[in-house]
Design a protein around this nucleic acid. Structure first.
Ligand SMILES: NC(=O)c1ccc[n+]([C@@H]2O[C@H](COP(=O)([O-])OP(=O)(O)OC[C@H]3O[C@@H](n4cnc5c(N)ncnc54)[C@H](O)[C@@H]3O)[C@@H](O)[C@H]2O)c1
Ligand SMILES: NC(=O)c1ccc[n+]([C@@H]2O[C@H](COP(=O)([O-])OP(=O)(O)OC[C@H]3O[C@@H](n4cnc5c(N)ncnc54)[C@H](O)[C@@H]3O)[C@@H](O)[C@H]2O)c1
Lengths: 248, 248
DNA sequence: CCATCTTTGTGCACACGTTCACAAAGACAT
DNA sequence: ATGTCTTTGTGAACGTGTGCACAAAGATGG
């Protein structure tokens, strides 16, 4: 997951809980799959299984949207797809710019699941003049100088940053100044933005470190009896590795 | 964020809260930057600012690791780097395999922040025989047939999946059968894994949808002056209220 | 050795998220 | 109509995470 809400304090007003919002896309994906198989209705139990969550949670999540199910039957697939799409704002088109078209930026530009929901790539922007004009994913690379003009002309409100970390804050500032109010950041930096701008981040390295933590824990827990695998982990049981020094 | 913990129920034993674990890499990154600038000590206030969190939260997080600060002074940078690294299991080397070396897989393989922490790419694996042997990021692509052998030979416990969604579950099953117990999944699918295996996921599309939700909310809130009816958070312009049909 | 000042570590209260468990809504058959 | 059966929607209990606010630890200076 990603991230930092620099937005409003709470959501108790017309509020769908943040945790619920984060799961709606998951439900939507599962429902879309059912829809493609022409399944007419689905129970909370089935859908929950498909989305990898527990059914009580799913029902509570849906209850924040309204009462869209039918007791004894379940949920109408098409109807739910529509309701969730509307709630997420996917019934409209969101123009998006991607800044920093290197290895990662190009992969993102080629990502199908991008356009499949209402997201449209308005432009691919890179600072390297040598790249300008080159085509990536069928779109021409535009130079950073044009950033402000592109954002304004297309009314872009969502920006994706895939530049090196060092350039991320500057790019962010320019995007925000030009009118972008939501940013998805792939660079490993903390971005600071004014109130009213949302930032979410994706960081491979952080995800791996979290996995490593649990991995180490698993290794350290290994049944002392059957030394299954001499995992590279720390020694088990004993937590007492008193480490190095505590300098002055 | 991302994820499904299919691991243990809770962590009440030697437990560092999950939310804290997820922030440790962030602190570590900030500390590493300070370390490179030879800053000897840092206060919770300063470090919190650098990591983008609130200082009380940071102090509480650190308190789960032990009492590593000095009142009136702050935290010793080098010492904290060591303690957090140890806690996250980064003092050891973690061999990782990436499966599915297309646009995204190649970008991940080239990612510097990979090796910079203790993660080492043990192998890049792809199913396409035409690609086998080609070099990506200085490593030769290996064919999927070798997956099991590679995992076993390198004692790989962390796998990254960057294949198309359709292949993800099968790849996951093979990784798990071969001994992998932590998976980072970039394919837009829910993976099912046995107990004891951790899965984290990264999904661009989901992140964008979450941003779109808040974006829509912001637009719908625009000082509507008078005719404001706080009905179903619709955007300003098109007031296409009242949805379609509710089928039988 | 004492006073003062800074900054940690944490008790506490509250907000948020999850799960259980069940009343009641509706479908459907008779 | 009435009864049975399925499955929703949600109250209530519990667990986890956040942030305030402050006592106490230690540095530093006289
Ligand atoms: N989140 C993740 O999982 C993940 C994975 C891999 C890489 N990354 C990060 O993504 C970023 C990009 O990685 P990459 O491998 O594609 O790097 P890259 O070097 O291949 O690409 C960076 C691109 O950004 C462009 N650029 C540089 N400064 C710019 C500016 N000011 N304005 C516009 N464009 C600019 C460069 O011309 C280049 O094309 C890096 O920060 C990297 O650390 C993140
Ligand atoms: N999470 C994100 O933000 C994000 C972004 C872009 C793409 N994606 C996803 O990542 C995945 C890869 O995207 P991509 O653009 O690199 O696609 P791609 O088609 O360029 O690459 C897929 C690669 O996987 C290989 N492959 C297919 N089946 C395989 C198997 N069974 N075993 C091993 N390798 C196999 C293919 O040969 C190909 O090289 C897709 O699922 C895509 O939806 C995710």
């Amino acid at each position: 997951m990603a991230t930092g809400r620099t937005h409003r304090p709470a959501t108790r007003s017309r509020g769908i809980p943040e945790a619920t919002v984060a799961r709606l896309p998951l439900y939507l994906r599962a429902l879309t799959a059912l829809s493609e198989r022409s399944v007419p209705t689905v129970s909370s139990e089935e859908l929950a299984a498909a989305a990898g969550v527990n059914s009580a949670k799913l029902r509570k999540d849906f209850s924040y949207l309204g009462s869209y199910g039918t007791r004894g039957v379940g949920y109408d697939v098409e109807y739910l797809v529509y309701q969730i799409s509307r709630e997420l704002g996917l019934t409209q088109d969101w123009p998006v710019v991607i800044v920093g078209i290197g290895n990662l930026g190009a992969a993102l530009a080629n990502y199908g699941g991008f356009a499949s929901r209402g997201f449209r790539i308005a432009a691919l922007i890179d600072a390297d003049p040598a790249q300008t004009g080159k085509q990536v994913a069928g779109l021409p690379l535009r130079h950073s100088d044009e950033l402000e003009a592109i954002v304004a002309a297309n009314q872009v409100s969502i920006g994706v940053i895939a530049t090196p970390a060092g350039a991320a804050q500057e790019v962010c500032d320019r995007l925000v100044a030009a009118g972008v109010t939501s940013i998805l950041n792939f660079a490993p930096t903390v971005l600071s933005v004014p109130d009213g701008v949302d930032v979410r981040k994706v960081d491979l390295s952080i995800e791996l470190q979290i996995l490593a933590f649990h991995e180490q824990r698993k290794a350290g827990e290994e049944q002392p009896a059957s030394a299954a695998r001499p995992a590279r982990g720390q020694r088990p049981g004993t937590d007492g590795d008193v480490p190095a020094v505590m300098p002055a």
